[in-house]
Design a protein around this nucleic acid. Structure first.
Length: 895
DNA sequence: GCAAGGTC
């Protein structure tokens, strides 16, 4: 550009932004496009005036990060160093091969320019990418004037304002990302190498069936994600079902049925529940005490963010988050929906929402609804309510182009596009309106209530078919009205454990704890499956595998919170400490996996303390190792490529690498080792304690090696069961018998009777109350053998009872009732009050009335059978134990 | 062979 004008290089984070901003700034006047060296990143050219300065604008883009952080070459190989060295190993940022063409475009264009304007996304990562672009461009042209454009949406006014008010890029934000990258790399690589090598050598991990290399990866996002899954799993295992009881009442009239629920909800104390129930059955007349009518609104969802899109696609279509993002990306690339990676759930006031609705008016399914929305007379429109999130870079996900379905679309493309459109139309709609009626009644002093709902206006629910709002009509009641319930039942239930985490639950957990970003959460979830850490069932719920559970348990037992993005120093300390504590990890894995024999022979434990750099290959460290036989050696980590090894005397009983270095041996440093010898195996003139060097200078070590040799310290033991089991058991006593059934001949992995519950219960001490599993009682309604359990309620703690494990059956009986020949109680939903009993509820009813009460109970479809098969009949007062009356009229009852 | 973050 000759004369007064300046040439400006503008760089956006992605090609679509470069195109949009160029279109806005050029107003489509004189806009030219040419190819760059990268096929995806074209260059737009136009003229523009910035604060009176005529500019020739070149507008191009990168594709996300331009650079990658890597270890220097000599640390790249897994056996090149101790994993702990990766906390010090030099790292460098460079442009990877597949981004070189973008770099060349930037260099070539930068040489022609005077200014560089950075249009990267306005978040931390964007700021970091901005400095990557600056590095490349200023290397080609050191005289560039560098400016940053700040914008939060691709809207005309916003973009023009941004370019007229250019600011400085923020180095602090960029530095924060650099720190994050470095921490992630060092922690991820070091722990992944550490635990992979440790476990591969020690265990047969048969979870992996194909030929792929086993990688037990560790990452500051994937591991906490696994942690959520394991934590829930443990919660389920720990759950102890507890019986509860509730009283329910229904009333049928000409207008329909009302189901009243008990004001107390439910009680865990059976005796209390029965006493109250008996009071109600004695005086069953219900009196209406309150009738309340209220208008209720059901609001449409907030504008769509990435996480909500993933959660809803999972719930509505059972699509995995990973697949959802793949389909969403394709819809975005072909222009049908807006950018799919956004945290924002709030539309900018400058967005033309009506225009988006207008586009959808012709659709065969929801076009009529869109027309109604735009009709002021219909009164359906309502400006959307935001959820309070704004990433300052992208709007909520919304349709950007009309489609009634494209020929190349799969069913999932159609479903997802439909979800985005319907969600958007719902957002700008009025909430649904309902009229709720709540009726409260009193029976013998107990409060019950029933609720009915009539939907007056469906509004957004008309288009958002994924949600429903149940309506139920109940009969009309007036205050003071009295009636006899049609049914009045004492029902039992059992507390249930929570279900395994669903994909939507998992996303919520991650979102809440800040694990990952909208663009990466689905990756972390997928990684759990790829690494065989967890499995997903047909209902999209996640359960950890043995491998996943063992890893989390191992770190849990070590007591480290390794998922926290702590400072590097703390992480490094934890890494070293974890290495020393690796026995915990090995133990946890030992519960689930068979030990391998690989570490028994020449191949030693893979990880040890570093003694020196290998003088032979000069690439890897030499570490102190101990074989299963108890012999020590110092070997090169580069094995088997490098076979450099120093074998130590067979009389060594202990060896620990110290921080003391040898001043003679080279190349240094060579760390000296504190040895302890077995007194009986060395000549009397040698000391049992010796601080030695393996670098060649240590005469004592040489002499003892010659005297004692490096082989087995004892004469070879006869091969056979004694030797092998002795070795195995000392290392891992769990190995001999299966952890699940205590049988020999197989491991817990392939235990035929393996249940998840028993495995976990043993580990965490959550042994169930089942005392024996022996069924001495069964009910004749379902025939299922009953389980003897121990009550945990306040009044009956420790008291034993039999209950039917079937969810369908309410059978229950106290053990002491069985022994004394009296029955417990069990009531079912069919236990309605006989008509003949109504009105005869006075306390003067005598035994006759009680008798009918008993009949009502025994008329239920459950009877009790003792261990001998004899039916048990009769109930007794729960206050005094007298079978002649019920507790509500017990003379011994207080009050 | 390792992480997580961009984006195609």
């Amino acid at each position: 550009m000759a004369g007064r004008g300046v040439t400006v290089l503008n760089v956006a984070e992605k090609p679509s932004v470069a195109k949009s901003v160029a279109n806005i700034l050029s107003r489509n006047q004189g806009l030219r496009v040419r190819d760059g060296r990268s096929r995806y990143n074209r260059i737009f050219e136009f003229n523009y005036t910035i604060r009176g300065q005529p500019c020739h604008m070149l507008f191009t883009s990168v594709i996300g990060h331009l650079m990658e952080l890597e270890f220097e070459d000599r640390y790249r190989k897994w056996h090149s160093c101790d994993p702990a060295d990766l906390y010090h190993a030099p790292v460098r940022k460079s442009v990877p091969e597949d981004k070189k063409d973008i770099k060349r475009t930037l260099e070539e264009e930068a040489r022609r320019c005077q200014w560089l304007v950075l249009w990267l996304d306005c978040d931390r990562e964007g700021e970091n990418i901005a400095f990557e672009v600056v590095d490349v461009c200023t290397a080609a042209n050191p005289h560039l004037t560098i400016k940053r454009a700040r914008f939060s949406a691709l809207i005309d006014r916003e973009i023009h304002q941004a370019v007229q008010n250019l600011v400085e890029p923020n180095k602090w934000f960029a530095d924060a990302v650099d720190a994050r990258q470095e921490i992630d790399l060092r922690i991820g690589a070091s722990f992944t190498r550490f635990q992979t090598m440790l476990m591969k050598d020690a265990f047969i991990i048969d979870t992996i069936t194909d030929d792929r290399n086993i990688i037990l990866s560790y990452g500051p996002c994937q591991f906490p994600t696994l942690g959520f899954v394991v934590e829930r799993y443990w919660e389920i295992q720990a759950h102890e079902p507890e019986e509860f009881w509730s009283i329910n009442c229904s009333h049928r009239s000409d207008e329909g049925v009302a189901n009243f629920s008990w004001g107390r909800g439910h009680l865990f104390d059976y005796t209390c529940a029965v006493i109250i129930y008996e009071m109600c059955t004695e005086e069953p007349t219900a009196t209406v005490t309150n009738v309340r009518q209220q208008e209720k609104l059901k609001y449409p969802p907030h504008p769509l963010s990435t996480i909500e899109l993933e959660k809803r696609a999972s719930r509505y279509f059972r699509m995995s988050s990973e697949h959802t993002m793949k389909v969403a990306e394709e819809l975005y690339q072909s222009g049908f929906i807006s950018y799919p990676r956004t945290e924002t759930d709030n539309f900018s006031s400058r967005t033309d929402l009506h225009a988006i609705v207008q586009e959808q008016q012709g659709h065969p399914q929801w076009g009529v609804y869109a027309q109604r929305l735009l009709d002021p007379e219909a009164g359906l429109w309502r400006n959307p309510r935001g959820g309070g999130h704004d990433d300052k870079a992208h709007p909520p996900i919304h349709p950007t182009k009309f489609s009634a379905g494209e020929s190349g679309w799969s069913q999932d493309h159609r479903k997802l596009y439909e979800l985005v459109v319907r969600h958007f139309l719902a957002c700008v709609s009025k909430p649904a309106v309902g009229a709720e009626t709540t009726v409260e009644i009193d029976i013998a002093g107990e409060l019950f209530s029933a609720c009915g709902r009539v939907i007056l206006e469906k509004n957004y629910l008309d288009v958002y078919q994924y949600e429903s709002w149940g309506g139920s009509i109940i009969p009309t009641y007036t205050i003071g009205q009295q009636f006899i319930p049609t049914t009045l039942t004492l029902d039992s239930g059992v507390t249930r454990p929570p279900p395994p985490l669903s994909e939507a639950d998992l996303l919520s957990c991650m979102d809440k704890e800040g694990i990952g970003t909208d663009a990466t959460m689905h990756d972390h979830i997928k990684k759990l499956l790829d690494r065989f850490y967890a499995t997903k069932d047909a209902s999209m719920r996640f359960t950890p595998t043995n491998l996943g559970e063992a890893l989390v348990m191992g770190y849990d037992d070590m007591g480290y919170k390794l998922w926290k993005p702590y400072l590097r120093a703390v992480m490094e300390r934890d890494m070293k400490s974890a290495r020393l504590n690796k026995v915990k990890l090995l133990e946890a894995m030992g519960i689930f996996f068979e030990r391998s024999n690989r570490s028994g022979g020449e191949e030693q434990n893979a990880i040890g303390e570093v003694v020196r750099r290998c003088g032979l290959c000069r690439e890897s460290d030499m570490v102190l190792k101990k074989s299963r036989d108890g012999n020590f050696m110092v070997g090169c980590l580069g094995f088997p490529q490098c076979r450099n090894a120093v074998w130590l005397p067979g009389s060594v009983s202990e060896a620990v690498v110290t921080t003391n270095t040898c001043s003679n041996c080279t190349p240094g440093p060579v760390y000296r080792i504190q040895f302890k010898f077995r007194q009986l195996e060395i000549p009397p003139n040698y000391d049992v304690n010796h601080l030695g060097c393996i670098g060649g200078c240590d005469e004592i070590l040489t002499q003892l090696t010659e005297i004692c040799g490096t082989g087995p310290r004892m004469p070879a033991r006869p091969r056979g069961p004694t030797t092998s089991t002795g070795n195995a058991h000392h290392t891992n006593p769990r190995q001999a018998v299966c952890m699940n059934c205590q049988e020999t001949g197989h491991s817990s992995n392939d235990c035929p009777s393996q249940t998840l519950r028993s495995r976990n219960a043993r580990q965490h001490g959550n042994v169930m109350n089942q005392q024996s599993g022996e069924a001495s009682v069964s009910c004749n309604s379902c025939g299922t053998p009953c389980v003897l359990r121990t009550a945990n309620t306040a009044n009956n703690r420790g008291r034993k009872f039999y209950s039917c494990p079937s969810q369908e059956c309410n059978f229950f009986v106290w053990e002491d009732d069985l022994n004394s020949g009296t029955g417990g109680g069990s009531f079912t939903r069919s236990n309605s009050i006989p008509t003949s009993n109504r009105g005869r509820n006075g306390r003067n009813g005598g035994r006759g009335a009680r008798g009918r009460g008993r009949n009502a109970s025994s008329s239920s479809n459950v009877t009790f059978v003792s261990a001998t098969g004899d039916p048990i009949s009769g109930r007794r007062c729960f206050v005094c134990g007298d079978p002649s009356h019920f507790a509500n009229v017990c003379p011994n009852r207080g009050g």
